[in-house]
Amino acid sequence: MQKLGDFKLPHFFNYPPYFTLQPVKDTREKQIQLWKELVVDFCRAQNIFIIELENDFPLFTNPVIERSLSHEAREVFLSALVSEGRAEWMDKGHRKCLILWHRIQDWADLILGFVKDNGLEDSVMTVEEIRSGTESRGTELHGVERSVLMRALKLLEHKGKLTIFKGASTDDEGIKFSI
């Protein structure tokens, strides 16, 4: 089985036709499903949140079989993730895509679990402490894309689970949990 770093690639990754958009509807649907799962699994394993279509992305090329996805195929696969709510285009030209290996509600649930597991129910933290503090090390919150974290925090604020306080800079934004 081929690997990309420590990530095990699925068997279809070595099958050249999967690097070309398939013309038959049923085959294309299967191809899109396999690529969607691969992109989400890889991004989650590698803690990747943003894919830029114009830049090299390790999954989109297989040097072993000398195949690369076309720009059109990349956009089709990522657009399929967008239509499921598993990704969002970050620009109108579809050049940058935010991968949501958890939906925003799931990120919010992870934050609540983190708060409860660490006994932070009535405490104050900065956004940066959640993203890169010692408490978050070893959790999926460590290194989370800031925009994803802020959306999950705002969802929790809307539900009355916390209050976000603006600081002098974005590094100083604080959160008061009230769970």
Rank of each mutant, 00 (worst) to 15 (best):
K92V: 11
S70I: 05
T170Y: 10
R131V: 01
P23F: 13
N62L: 09
L98C: 04
T163S: 15
F7V: 09
F114A: 00
D41M: 03
R86F: 06
I32G: 08
N62M: 09
L153K: 05
K154I: 13
P58T: 08
I32H: 02
L4C: 15
L162Y: 10
L59G: 05
S169E: 03
V124I: 14
Q2T: 14
K25Q: 14
K159D: 10
E66D: 12
F60R: 08
M150K: 11
S68G: 10
L34P: 02
W89L: 02
I99F: 06
K96V: 06
S136E: 01
V40R: 05
K159F: 06
E52P: 01
L4M: 12
L4Y: 13
L21P: 07
S123H: 05
N47F: 04
K25H: 14
A152G: 04
P58I: 08
Y18I: 10
G113I: 00
F57C: 07
E37V: 05
K92S: 14
L110N: 01
S147Q: 08
K36F: 08
W89Q: 05
T170L: 07
F165N: 11
I32V: 09
T20Y: 05
A80L: 15
H71G: 10
V24C: 14
G113Y: 01
V124N: 13
H142T: 00
L153T: 04
R131G: 04
A80P: 13
N118P: 00
L34R: 09
V76G: 11
L156W: 13
D171N: 14
G113V: 03
R86W: 10
K159G: 12
V127N: 04
G93N: 15
E173A: 10
F77N: 14
I99D: 01
P23G: 13
P16Q: 02
S79N: 12
M150F: 14
G160F: 08
P10W: 09
R86M: 12
F77L: 07
T139E: 00
K3F: 09
E29M: 13
Q46C: 06
H142A: 02
D171V: 12
L141P: 00
D122F: 11
R146N: 07
S178G: 11
E173V: 09
S147C: 07
A152K: 04
